[in-house]
Design a protein around this nucleic acid. Structure first.
Lengths: 150, 150
DNA sequence: GCGTAACGGGACCTAATCGGTCCTAATAGG
DNA sequence: CCTATTAGGACCGATTAGGTCCCGTTACGC
């Protein structure tokens, strides 16, 4: 039921990796791609989106890279998804795109979607990036946890 | 952020129409399609799915049709979406499909998705079909409400 | 300064799948 | 027995997710 694109998934994984290092640390797109096993160009594209949304800050030139724009506690999963997928709701209705649905005048559910969208968004806004990283610590443990459903 | 397929949307609208009539009333696929402005074959396909999921009961033959299997209060939006889109979570991870993700061993967010999926599902399970129908009553008012975001 | 390492912002492709159509049973009234 | 209806497929076109590539800009460091 209801799916998020894989891109958004990757984005969260990338940011999770960033959140595992000290705040302010810079990560190159290549570095993050390697750690997450995401193809480099894809990771690069995602990081650009995240930078445009203001979730990460970028530094160009040599020794450049990406870093978290704020504390991991201040970034929600909803923020990340919105940065990558755009402010699209569960349905296209009520997302500000007027006239997108040509059967609006006949829709029995008209005006009933907004509360649902908000409920879902609230659920996602309550999950912070800081809660996504493995609590026990760095990458080492990850290998030992194989077998657990991702 | 996060999208539902149009099919699921249509399904909800179809069921909403059913919920606007007295419980036990039978509706033909054509009838519902006409009211919802959904193409007939599509509505038919959706109703089949809903019947297979046990949300509606079907009667074949002349004077047949579809009816709600239980009270509108007992059908949640989550039920409907699951019936049409299948039990897919926000991500493919944690939906029982083992090994779907080949980078599972390296995933920094491993095991962290289940709570999020559950939060979203809970939000949708709290919305009942009975809450979707226009409270003021039958179709007549719908036309008057034009201009409201669907 | 100049070369190189990084990001910025596109265009572009192709594989999946969403949304929709259609056809042939099976079923049940009249 | 005829007709209205659902059951269950096969099938198809258009959209888009997911990924690749290229070229420009920025800035560190030799």
């Amino acid at each position: 039921m209801i799916r998020m694109t894989k891109l958004a998934d990757y984005g969260i994984v990338l940011l999770t990796h960033m959140a595992m290092e000290a705040p302010g640390t810079l990560h190159t797109a290549q570095d993050l791609a390697g750690k997450s096993r995401v193809p480099v160009p894809t990771a690069s594209k995602l990081l650009k989106s995240l930078a445009r949304a203001g979730l990460v800050v970028s530094h160009r030139g040599r020794n450049g890279g990406y870093g978290l724009a704020r504390d991991a506690e201040e970034i929600s999963v909803a923020d990340i998804i919105a940065a990558i997928e755009g402010p699209i709701g569960l349905t296209e209705c009520g997302t500000g795109t007027e006239g997108a649905c040509d059967m609006e005048p006949f829709c029995a559910a008209k005006g009933r979607w907004a509360p649902i969208n908000q409920a879902v968004e609230r659920a996602l806004r309550d999950v912070r990036l800081s809660a996504m990283r493995p609590q026990a610590g760095p990458l080492v443990r990850l290998q030992a946890e194989s077998g657990v459903v991702r």
